[in-house]
């Protein structure tokens, strides 16, 4: 398991324990534990009640990401990110409709309304899947996002709607949020720049 994968996962989660990290990476806990031990040893991760990335680790991660970017077809990735931004707008509107109904917090007491909103998620999923495939052609490690989105969607469809927007767990929104961050970084941009340009809202 690569140093980049682990550092990036810890960074995206902010603070995370070993078991959660192994789960989100779909990796064997023993292998994750040994990588964590090495990275903690050299001061790139800080282990406490939870794991987090150190300033050195952040520097190392940024260098690894820059190196990774240098080997890809930037135009192809930029095109994938462009497509993502278009779907992102629709997804964010969908999330807002899920959380708010007539401008008030959605009490989720109107099954018809909720079902109509969730039905739109299928379309979003259909549209984002080829975009992830295109990005994965450049950065193979991004393929895990397709699996994680599909897993969240399956749980939502089975009736466990917490997997739509709940933070911390790998809900559809959590995975989407992280994927968005990956695409921003892979395009050599920052979230602040993207937010100011109105794309990371």
């Amino acid at each position: 398991m690569s140093e980049l994968t682990v550092l990036q996962a810890v960074r995206l989660k902010g603070r995370v324990n070993e078991a959660e990290l192994a789960a989100t990476l779909y990796e064997d806990p023993a292998g994750v534990a040994s990588t964590i031990a090495q990275l903690t040893e050299v001061g790139l991760l800080v282990a406490g009640k939870t794991l987090r990335i150190s300033p050195d680790g952040r520097g190392r991660l940024n260098a690894l990401l820059a190196q990774e970017r240098s080997g890809i077809d930037q135009d192809a990735l930029a095109a994938a990110y462009d497509d993502f931004r278009a779907v992102n707008a629709g997804f964010k509107a969908l999330v807002a409709d899920w959380q708010l109904k007539d401008g008030q917090p959605n009490a989720h007491d109107d099954a018809g309304y909720d079902a109509a909103v969730l039905a739109r998620l299928d379309d979003v999923h259909h549209r984002v899947s080829p975009i992830i495939a295109a990005a994965t052609a450049q950065l193979p490690r991004l393929d895990i996002y397709a699996d994680k989105l599909a897993a969240a969607l399956e749980k939502i469809k089975a009736g466990d709607t917490a997997w739509f927007t709940r933070p911390i767990i790998d809900s559809y929104h959590t995975v989407w949020f992280e994927l968005h961050e990956e695409l921003i970084v892979a395009s050599g941009l920052s979230r602040e720049e993207e937010a100011k340009a109105g794309h990371a809202q």
């Binding site: 960074r11 933070p167 959590t174 949020f177 979230r191 602040e192």
Partner: peptide
């Protein structure tokens, strides 16, 4: 300024 995934714990 804007929130990133790693801000969620802080939120």
């Amino acid at each position: 300024a804007a929130t990133s995934p790693d801000d969620v714990q802080g939120m």
